[in-house]
Structure formats: structure tokens, C-alpha cells
Amino acid sequence: MRLVYVFDAYCGWSHGFSRTLLEITARHPDIPVEVVSGGLFTGTGRVPIGRFGYIRGANARISELTGAEFGEGYERLIAGGAFVMDSEAAARGVAALRQAVPERAAELAAALQNAFYIDGHSLSEPDTYRTVAEAAGLDADTVAAAFQAPQAHAAAEADFRRAAQLGVDAYPTLLAVDGDTVTALARGQATADQVDERLAALRASRTPRF
């Protein structure tokens, strides 16, 4: 069995789920985690953030339910309403970080969201990936170069296809994949204890009884 986490780095609810994700991975270090980027803001969806009138209300709700923080850097970045969230660029960044240390993909996905939602760094800028990489003890130049490489575009598109193949169209979604069986453990908001209960029930249902 493995966990598949489908998220979008520009999704506030994914930011709110980060604590749960990190707690689950800490509790179950034996279960591999695959991180897949969704394409929330792509194509014609890439518009100035000011057009999304629900953002501040949604962020307040996310904070209330999950305890997630939205920092001053983020507030400054979006204050004028002109900033454009580009999920394809963010997915390239996720791919670059994931390529560096696949086993730390969940940790780095959370760090990337903090870079945006707390520090106010654009996920379209190579320097953002240098900053995240340095903080994680990775080679910053290598990660930044990977973000800008043609392979990153292919990886982003592959992630979008993977999310669609899994039937995921809302973020975040945490899945348990066991062979051909795919089970949703969380969609949107859930605590680590709730995910653990569902995971335990899934394991119990698949344990042979004699």
C-alpha cells in the first residue's frame, strides 16, 4: 500500500491540510507517499487573484478549521489583486523538489506552500525554489535549474494527467492505493486522527480472516 496525495500548491485548503499530511507521514514512515500536483489555475484560469472575491473569506475559514497561518508576506503579495497564480509553474517546482529527494516529497510540498502562503514568494520564480531547497539542505542551484528545465514541463503535465486518471478534481485529496484498489482517506479537510481511523479500517477490511 502507498498513499497518493493530490494537491495544488496554490490551493488554500491544501495549505490547511499540510499539518495533517505531515503528521500522517510521521506516524507511518513505512508507507511510501506519492505527491501529485493538480492543475487548479491553468489555461484561462490563470487570472489576477483579485478576480477571486472569495479568497479572504475562504482563508479565514481554512484558518478556523485547520489552524493554518496566512502570513504578512502573503498578504502583501496579494494586496493589490494583480498577482497571478499559475499552477503549471507550481507543478514544475513540485517536480523539481520531488526529483531531488523523492522520499521527502510530502515535506517539501508543505514547505513550498509555506513559501507562498506565509512568506509571500511567487511559485513562478526560480529564486523561490532556491530558498526552499536551501532551507531543506538541498543543492539550490540544481533545484532551480530543474524547475526551468523542459523535463519539468513534462512532469507537470504528467501530474495533471495522473490526477485525472485517479478521478481527482478537488484538492487536497489523500488516497490509499493498494494494487488496483484506490480508497479516499480525505478530501478537503480532515485531522490526522480521522485519516488514521480510515486507514486502520481499510487495513482491517483487507486482512484475511481464518
Rank of each mutant, 00 (worst) to 15 (best):
D141Y: 15
A152P: 00
A146W: 02
T173A: 05
E103H: 14
A190P: 10
D169L: 08
T131C: 13
L108S: 01
A152C: 08
D178R: 06
V132G: 12
Q99S: 11
L112D: 06
I118E: 10
S124A: 14
S122L: 14
A110T: 07
Q113V: 07
T173W: 03
A163D: 04
D119N: 15
Y129L: 08
T173C: 04
A133S: 13
L123K: 03
R187F: 13
V168A: 02
A152E: 09
D159A: 02
A158E: 08
A115G: 13
T128N: 14
A170I: 03
L175P: 03
R98N: 08
G137L: 10
D180P: 10
A135M: 11
A140H: 08
P126Y: 05
R162I: 00
F116P: 07
T181A: 13
Y171Q: 03
L108K: 02
P126W: 06
G188Q: 09
R104M: 05
T183F: 14
A133F: 07
V168F: 01
P150K: 06
A146D: 08
L112T: 11
S124M: 14
A95M: 02
V177N: 07
Q99I: 04
G188P: 10
L97W: 05
G188M: 09
D119T: 13
Y117K: 08
T173G: 03
D119P: 15
F160K: 09
L166C: 05
R162T: 01
A176T: 09
D141W: 12
T131F: 10
Y117N: 11
A95N: 04
R92S: 01
T142D: 07
V94P: 02
P150E: 09
A106H: 04
A90L: 08
F147C: 02
H121K: 15
Q148P: 00
R104S: 06
A106V: 05
A164E: 07
A146S: 11
P102D: 04
R104P: 00
D159M: 03
A154N: 06
A109N: 08
D127E: 15
A105R: 00
E157D: 11
V132C: 13
Q189T: 15
Y171K: 01
A155N: 03
Q151P: 01
A110D: 02
A89T: 04
T183G: 07
T183N: 09
S122N: 13
L108H: 04
P102K: 02
A105W: 05
A149Q: 02
L108A: 05
L175N: 01
A91S: 07
V143L: 03
T191I: 13
Y129V: 00
Q148G: 02
A152I: 03
A154S: 09
Q148E: 13
A158P: 04
A156N: 02
R187Y: 12
D180G: 12
A106D: 00
Y117W: 13
D119V: 12
A96I: 01
A109Q: 05
Q113E: 12
G93C: 00
A164P: 00
